[in-house]
Amino acid sequence: MKIGIIGAGSIGGTLTRRLSALGHEVRVSNSRSPETLSELAAETGAHAVWSSEAALDADLVIVSIPQKNVPDLAAGIVDTAKDGAPIIETNNYYPQQRDGLIADIENGKPESVWVAEHLGSRGADVVKVFNGIYWKHLLEKGQPKSAADRIALPVAGADGPGKALVFDVVEQLGFEPVDGGALADSWRQHPGTPVYGKDFDADGVKAALAEATTERAPEWSAAPA
């Protein structure tokens, strides 16, 4: 599969490593020049490209950048992917720790819905996954389907071939995909929810998603003025 990755931080870089090792053709970019990713490219065999080139002809695109930087993405940055290609977004809103106030999210809009709106015409293809797993566990703790201690990951997005493809990618990486509902339900896996940062099995993920509430914990809200 051709996979374009926009963002080469902890999660984006880890997915570059894992997906390249599985034999996928990976194009990876960051907010700077391809030369700044030369070590990652040499290590993995991935192609370091400008961010405007990452999605070109991709079967799958992954956006893994700080939430505050989403509005800075070039218009149409994912539009060069193949028709129907899903757009995974792994982002989290960290208002006190990094991102500052994003009013729409503070007022209740799910983080992934906000990201999808900024991705324009391809927003309908957005799927939320990988936002709550520690990057070292993503790198090291994938297990065969038969493993009793296999970690499960919630996947939120519209039902259809795109979401099914994302389920398959999660499986390939050695994790158990659990249906997290539509993109509008992705708040159930936000920072501070029962599933976030936990290495639950499938039953544990389902229970944690069901226990989530829309109330944002103080540490995951913008600091009062």
Rank of each mutant, 00 (worst) to 15 (best):
K2L: 08
I3C: 07
G4F: 01
I6H: 00
S10I: 09
S10W: 12
G12S: 03
T14A: 03
T16S: 02
L19G: 01
S20F: 05
H24W: 08
E25L: 13
V26W: 02
L37H: 03
S38E: 13
S38I: 12
A41V: 01
A41C: 01
A42W: 05
A42R: 15
E43P: 08
E43A: 13
G45S: 02
G45N: 02
H47E: 15
A58T: 01
D59K: 00
V61E: 01
I62D: 00
V63W: 05
V63P: 03
I65H: 00
P66H: 09
P66D: 09
P66A: 11
Q67H: 14
K68W: 13
N69T: 15
L73C: 03
G76D: 06
D79V: 00
A81R: 13
A81C: 08
A81D: 03
A85P: 01
N92M: 01
N92V: 05
Y93P: 02
Y94L: 14
P95N: 08
Q96A: 14
R98N: 11
R98V: 04
R98A: 14
G100K: 10
D104W: 01
D104P: 10
I105L: 08
E106K: 13
E106N: 12
E106F: 07
N107E: 14
K109D: 06
E111C: 12
S112A: 14
V115H: 06
E117Y: 11
E117A: 12
H118V: 06
H118C: 03
G120K: 03
S121E: 15
R122G: 13
D125C: 09
V126H: 10
K128F: 08
K128D: 03
W135N: 10
L139C: 09
L139T: 02
K141S: 14
K141T: 13
Q143F: 10
K145Y: 13
S146L: 07
A148G: 10
I151S: 04
A152Y: 06
A152W: 07
P154V: 03
V155K: 00
A158V: 10
G160V: 04
P161M: 10
L165G: 11
D168V: 03
V169I: 15
V170K: 02
E171I: 02
G174N: 08
F175Q: 06
A182T: 13
L183A: 05
L183C: 06
D185T: 05
W187T: 04
R188H: 07
R188S: 08
H190V: 01
H190K: 13
G192Q: 09
Y196N: 12
G197V: 06
G197K: 07
F200R: 07
F200P: 01
D201C: 01
A202L: 09
D203M: 07
D203Y: 06
K206R: 15
A207F: 04
A207E: 10
A208P: 01
L209F: 00
L209W: 01
L209G: 02
A210F: 05
E211L: 12
A217E: 13
W220C: 06
W220Q: 11
S221R: 15
A223T: 13
P224H: 02
A225E: 15
